[in-house]
């Protein structure tokens, strides 16, 4: 499943990041990488972007990006 499929409040571990675009590399520098636990906080009023909680801070990314982040619930 991808980060998009989580419900608000659900936590998971990132298993794979599916592309190696500049934006993905940037996200990795922000700590979004394999093995990092994330919590899906909520999506914005119009459904996109989403807000996640990881490494103790909150980050907002678009759904198109979240699509390429694979996760596993725990």
């Amino acid at each position: 499943m991808t980060l998009n499929d989580l419900e608000p409040g659900e936590s998971a571990i990132i298993t794979t990041i599916d592309d190696s675009s500049n934006e993905s590399n940037y996200l990795m520098e922000l700590g979004v990488m394999e093995g990092t636990p994330v919590r899906f906080v909520k999506s914005a009023p119009f459904g996109d972007p989403i807000e996640v909680d990881l490494r103790g801070y909150h980050l907002s990314i678009r759904r198109s990006k979240a699509q390429s982040i694979l996760v596993q619930k725990f």
Binding site: N22, E23, Y26, L27, L30, P49, E51, Y57, H58, L59, S60, I61, R62, K65
Partner: peptide, 12 residues
Amino acid sequence: MPSSSFVLELPA
């Protein structure tokens, strides 16, 4: 030029 993207920290 590089296209729009959106990665934003939401500070407390």
